[in-house]
């Protein structure tokens, strides 16, 4: 049986719905040494900023029960370095390359989108990073800031615009709706949950950046429910993300309403995770006699 795994965001076609989450896959180059990443539906780059950022002080990682806290702080070499040094190397990947962008101001988001226009397959607007002092999550926690950022990006590029949302808010569905109304072609749900961990002997946070973002299986039920709430409220595709470790987690996200998924920190415990999940999804559809992934998207609802 031929299984149709393809899907779309705006006009952009994806050969399958498995993507890799920003910040967990670099720019794909290192993992491409382990498996052929062109087999994935797409990769989302580490967030790119206008200027080079050194990131936060160590320790940047602390393990939590069934997950981890990170406080990396958007370490990257800036947009010019990305365009000159990184892009030429990743352009040849036979898959969608989605650039994640993070600005300190609305204007910076616009400038990043403008510079990336026509250079990548799509843009994911990161308004949900919990680990920076300026910008980041503060945009995604406010309706009017969200609208301003998304509208700005929308005006500066003809590429599909995906908005990555923070779950650290009372009603994520409102921010999702605002993103859609401001011109987003899709929303990614969710970025990490804010948290921290204390060293009881030093009486201080275990993280150099004090607080961090929780990811991994620990957040899966929370993320899954956020996807379900949002998907029934908007018309554009939802990309589900949060603790997806295996194919059945992925299928849950599709059934909750995600059209695509992002594999995040699973890659840290298994660099082959995204490929393994893709194969598992395909196998599940075959076994269950489901011809197209679209048949199960959002199939679960309240009775």
């Amino acid at each position: 049986m031929k299984i149709d795994l393809s899907t779309k965001i705006g006009k952009l076609k994806f050969k399958n719905p498995v993507l890799t989450a920003s910040g967990t896959f670099g720019y794909g180059l290192l993992i491409n040494e382990i498996f052929d990443i062109s087999r994935l539906g797409g990769i989302i780059t580490k967030s790119i900023t206008i200027r080079s950022r050194p990131g936060n002080p160590a320790p940047r990682i602390v393990e939590a029960a069934c997950g981890m806290l990170n406080s990396i702080g958007l370490e990257n070499k800036g947009i010019e370095n990305f365009l000159d040094e990184v892009l030429p190397k990743i352009k040849s990947f036979n898959t969608n390359v989605i650039a994640s962008i993070a600005g300190e101001t609305v204007d910076e988001y616009g400038r990043l989108a403008e510079k990336l226009d026509r250079n990548v397959s799509a843009i994911e607007v990161n308004i949900s990073c919990p680990n920076v002092k300026k910008g980041g999550m503060s945009f995604g926690q406010d309706l009017s800031s969200t609208k301003k950022v998304v509208k700005k990006v929308r005006r500066k590029t003809s590429l599909p615009v995906i908005v990555k949302l923070t779950p650290n808010i009372t009603r994520i569905e409102d921010i999702a709706k605002a993103s859609e109304e401001s011109g987003a072609d899709a929303v990614s749900i969710v970025n990490t949950y804010e948290g921290f961990s204390i060293d009881i002997y030093r009486r201080n946070s275990k993280l150099g950046g004090f607080s961090g973002g929780l990811s991994g299986p620990a957040i899966k039920p929370l993320a899954l429910f956020a996807v379900w709430k949002v998907a029934k409220n908007i018309d554009v595709p939802v990309i589900g993300c949060g603790g997806i470790m295996n194919f059945s987690d992925a299928i849950e996200f599709f059934m909750a309403g995600a059209s695509l998924i992002e594999v995040g920190s699973a890659t840290f415990s298994d660099p082959n995770a995204s490929l393994r999940i893709l194969k598992g999804v395909k196998h599940f559809l075959e076994e269950e006699n489901i011809k197209s992934i679209k048949e199960i998207v959002g199939i679960v609802d309240e009775n």
Binding site: G23, T24, F25, G26, L30, I31, I34, K46, S52, P54, G55, A58, P59, R60, I61, V62, M68, N70, I72, E75, S265, T267, F268, P271
Partner: peptide, 21 residues
């Protein structure tokens, strides 16, 4: 402390001496 061990998470950073980053 490391998460990935392969260079993608940027969790195990060490400061460069006399240089930025």
């Amino acid at each position: 402390r490391m998460a990935c061990g392969i260079g993608v998470c940027l969790g195990c950073s060490v400061k460069r001496k006399g240089k930025y980053g």
